[in-house]
């Protein structure tokens, strides 16, 4: 029956809504990117830490296959005799071909390539191995053995993922600053556009806080709605990406999935919550500053 809102909704609000929706969309993408980067770091760490790989390089001449098999057995013996190693298994030929398939394809010719023999070994949780000593033992038992404990790659990938995560946080911060600036500008414009209303409320004895609440409520609702739409769009994109991967489409075969778990999409709710809070505080500060200029 009655209009409860003192400030009308229509005056010049649409452009602000669009800008906040776009900002929220970008913020949600950045947030999703940080989650994906964190997944990548966790995935790489979980997949590679606690594991070592031994390569037995094929001899360039002679009875390569026999030598490779003998060195593999010798290396396996060393690994299985090392305290802290709970499992050591050579990869089958099929498994090795599958590993090179993304780069070299599945042509028959690939099978003819002199591939090294790989041995996967698991380290017992909590065990610390002396990798240098193990490498020496392996070298003495199998001269063509090369030990890879993945620490170099794990550290580099972890650093890369952390850089991506912090970059995403930086983008989020910049978007928050930009959103606050836009709302401050819009609030000033709103004060000008609604100058008659502000001066009337002021004249009727409204406290500065009352007038500020009129504006902050308006911009809070506008930001909540617009940012909700922007974040929902981003969430839909992440869901679609997840759906594509679940049916077998891989964006980049050797990277972790570029999607966010459905439960993690709840983090997207933080975007409209933060945007509306930023809008509320910015509008309040802007209005109170402007009202101090009035008699």
């Amino acid at each position: 029956m009655k209009n409860r809102r003192i400030m009308p909704n229509s005056k010049g609000a649409a452009p602000l809504d669009v800008v906040i929706a776009v900002m929220a969309f970008l913020a949600a993408l950045a947030l999703g990117a940080s989650l994906i980067a964190q997944h990548a770091a966790d995935s790489w760490s979980a997949g590679l830490s606690g594991k070592i790989t031994v390569q037995i390089l094929p001899a360039s001449t002679g009875a390569a296959r026999d030598g490779l098999a003998a060195e593999t057995e010798a290396a396996l013996a060393v690994l299985r005799g090392t305290p802290g190693i709970v499992r050591a298994t050579p990869l089958t030929e099929a498994e090795q071909l599958k590993l090179v398939q993304p780069w070299l394809g599945a042509e028959a010719l690939v099978a003819e390539l002199p591939l090294p023999q790989l041995i996967d070994a698991d380290i017992a949780p909590g065990s610390v191995l002396d990798m240098d000593a193990l490498a020496r033992h392996l070298k003495s038992a199998a001269p063509h053995a090369v030990l890879d404990d993945h620490s170099h790659w794990i550290n580099r990938l972890r650093d890369l993922a952390q850089t991506l995560v912090w970059s995403a946080y930086g983008v989020l911060f910049l978007i928050a600053v930009a959103t606050a600036s836009i709302v401050a500008f819009a609030t000033r414009a709103g004060l000008d556009a609604h100058n008659d209303m502000v001066s009337l409320l002021h004249q009727m004895g409204a406290q500065a806080g009352f007038i500020a609440r009129v504006f902050e409520g308006h911009y809070f609702r506008a930001a909540l709605t617009a940012a909700g739409a922007g974040a929902a769009t981003a969430a839909a994109i992440f869901l679609a990406a997840g759906g594509l991967q679940s049916v077998g489409y891989e964006a980049v075969p050797f990277l972790p999935p570029l999607s966010v778990k459905p439960i993690e999409l709840l983090w997207m709710l933080a975007v409209p919550a933060a945007a509306s809070l930023i809008a509320l505080v910015t509008a309040r500060v802007s209005v109170l500053a402007a009202l101090r200029q009035i008699h």
Partner: peptide
């Protein structure tokens, strides 16, 4: 503001808020 609230003002140009009933 407290003093202003003790005063009722009828403005010559009314100054009604057009979007309110």
């Amino acid at each position: 503001p407290g003093l202003r609230r003790r005063i009722g003002v009828v403005f010559q140009d009314f100054r009604l808020l057009d979007h309110l009933s």
